[in-house]
Design a protein around this nucleic acid. Structure first.
Lengths: 259, 259
DNA sequence: CGTAGTTTGTGCGTTGGCGTACATACGGCG
DNA sequence: CGCCGTATGTACGCCAACGCACAAACTACG
């Protein structure tokens, strides 16, 4: 049964329609497109160039559970999350998925294109609904050629992502579920800049690559320690400092690299 | 005891002097620098440019156990392995190391420099003694600016490395030691283009992030199944096909990406 | 308001790997 | 040749997580 559930999620990872509809719909509006919610990579582009660029950027509202790429898919658009959050998953044995990185407003989805490869090795799954900008692949490549600032920002993001993926690898190897869960919640909280989000334990189990029951017990323990609070698909961080203490050192390692 | 051993290796991962000396010394000579042993990235540079480049390339013999970078170290040189093999390790909790990628003649060590960051997040540990070319960081950056071909090759390698790290992450999460050991041996064999190499189980345990005893048992099983043969620091693959069957699917996933 | 579907909780037995300790075997060096 | 350091093998208790099964609670919708 667990197996079949995993299978379902791996092949059609969208949540149920009802679950989708209620996930932070108010964040998806294009109203907040400006200001500090702007994507960091786009912000790196000088304002003069940006004016021309703007015509090629298309605001999109990403919905929870949406899959932007599957491994091997041709990359037609690149995405620049603003208030949204995208998970990068590695698939293995055709039915298991593991999150290896997350991309928010500090990065982009479709990075391989910048490296000259038109296919992603990951599944890109929208994990936090919200706003993003997107651009056709050809346009993005043209912009890259024109803007050294964009190139530099993309390179830095590539470096950070690589470091994040590697740290996640080690973390998954050495740390127990509870620590990893705490880290995941903190990192997600950082990126969506909010302390509560809507996620089921089932979903979390696929991110962390463990059984759903494992999440239940880890989350139960964290709740008992008054660090988080949750019920039926919503989780709230109520003691950020405590949660940092409960998480493994990987959290500060990754988040301190933020530059 | 295990702890203290790990500690020792983490802080001073060089093997004993005797172990070092005997590890494939004949491969380190600069004699084979030419031809199909050449590094793939360097090979991407057109021969005209290469002539000028050559003056800035310095042949070096990498010895087993040598550490090229520690995490956070400034990158002074970049390395282009030819017959040598370098492991990239993520350190965690100050005493545990885990291999997240390996770089042979298909890549370079010091990649972050190409991304505009002068520090590596990894430890780079020479895992297969042999020849390499190296270049001062400043020279490498200059070459990058001059040669679009080199840029493209480096980008492709970045992509491949990212995919490899991610696959390793998932592999470490889902597969048992025996499968991972088989995969590791195959990947190493591919890169040094040989079926036997000199490595202790202790060393392997740090690559795979498991106890030495775990390696003993996994290797014992593989030997019982006539796939490998080993004794006192040397391992030989005697049935490549069988070993592929015994390894997890990650091997073919990663090695098929080779392009 | 009740029912169906989703989400969370609990309870097994099993297992792969951990930490530790100690025993054996090999091989280079005096 | 014999010794000592290094490498490998074996053993034991332990635990986190596994796979599976089913119970309980909540919510949305008819």
């Amino acid at each position: 049964m667990t197996e079949s559930l995993r299978n379902r999620l791996a092949l059609a990872p969208a949540a149920s329609a009802t679950a989708r509809a209620k996930l932070e719909p108010e964040r998806a509006g294009p109203a907040e497109r400006e200001g500090s919610n702007e994507n960091v990579l786009l912000a790196a582009i000088p304002r003069k160039q940006y004016r021309g660029l703007f015509a090629r950027l298309e605001p999109v509202a990403l919905t929870f559970g949406e899959v932007l790429f599957q491994p091997g898919d041709a990359i037609r658009h690149v995405y620049f999350p603003e208030t949204s959050l995208v998970s990068l998953l590695t698939l293995v044995d055709h039915h298991l998925a593991l999150e290896v990185g997350m991309v928010g407003r500090e990065g982009m989805v479709g990075l391989p294109l910048a490296l000259g490869v038109a296919a992603s090795p990951f599944r890109a799954l929208v994990q936090g609904a919200g706003a993003a900008m997107r651009m056709k692949s050809a346009h993005f490549l043209a912009e890259m050629r024109q803007s050294p600032q964009l190139q530099a920002a993309v390179c830095l993001h590539t470096y950070n992502l690589m470091a994040q993926v590697a740290q996640t690898a080690a973390c998954n190897r050495f740390h127990v579920v509870q620590e990893r869960l705490a880290r995941w919640l903190l990192m997600t909280g950082d990126r969506v800049r909010s302390n509560d989000f809507r996620l089921t334990q089932e979903f979390l189990s696929h991110m962390l690559g463990v059984r759903r029951v494992g999440v239940t017990m880890a989350a139960g323990e964290l709740q008992k320690r008054k660090l988080i609070q949750y019920s039926r698909g919503s989780i709230r961080i109520i003691d950020r400092h405590g949660l940092e203490a409960a998480s493994c050192s990987c959290y500060e390692v990754v988040s301190s690299r933020r530059c």
